[in-house]
Amino acid sequence: MSFKTVERKPLSFAERTYVPQILGGLKTTFKKMVKPNETLEYPEARPTIPPGYRGVPTLVKDPNGREKCVSCQLCEFVCPPKAIRIKPGEIPADDPTAHVEKAPQEFDIDMLRCIYCGLCQEVCPEEAIWLQNVFSLSGYTREEMVNNKAKLYELGGTLPDDHYKWDKKKAAEEAGNGGH
């Protein structure tokens, strides 16, 4: 049997007047009233941002100052509300990172569209886009709410890198096949 019959005790007289219950309730609310309140008084007080928080998506550089995004446009593809707009471009041949070949010319994230889902961060093969701890954005116009490439790097800063994939690549290119 999926249900159970619950024995209900008949109410006592005092219970039927509701008075003890009401007094009990008053006691509870009074206790709540004298307790310090729970509200975090933003903006004077700021919440502590836990690790893994999904704030505003930003672009990051590696510790050597190389922009990590190679404009593969996977984030643009995966972004559910189509908030990301990328214009891919080629890195000029005289650039120290010319071996990476590709970097975004323009990179816009429309924060009026972004839903902070974090899929861009998840899909990025270069670990270049991160939802970091910025959670408060405002602007007076729609244009102001579009983060361009410069703004994204300003917000993103530098994050540690586990791989240095492109530096290794360059070293290998310079060493050639001589190792064999």
Partner: peptide, 9 residues
């Protein structure tokens, strides 16, 4: 066409 656009778009 190099680096102009991803084909899936």
């Amino acid at each position: 066409f190099r680096f102009k656009m991803r084909v899936w778009f």
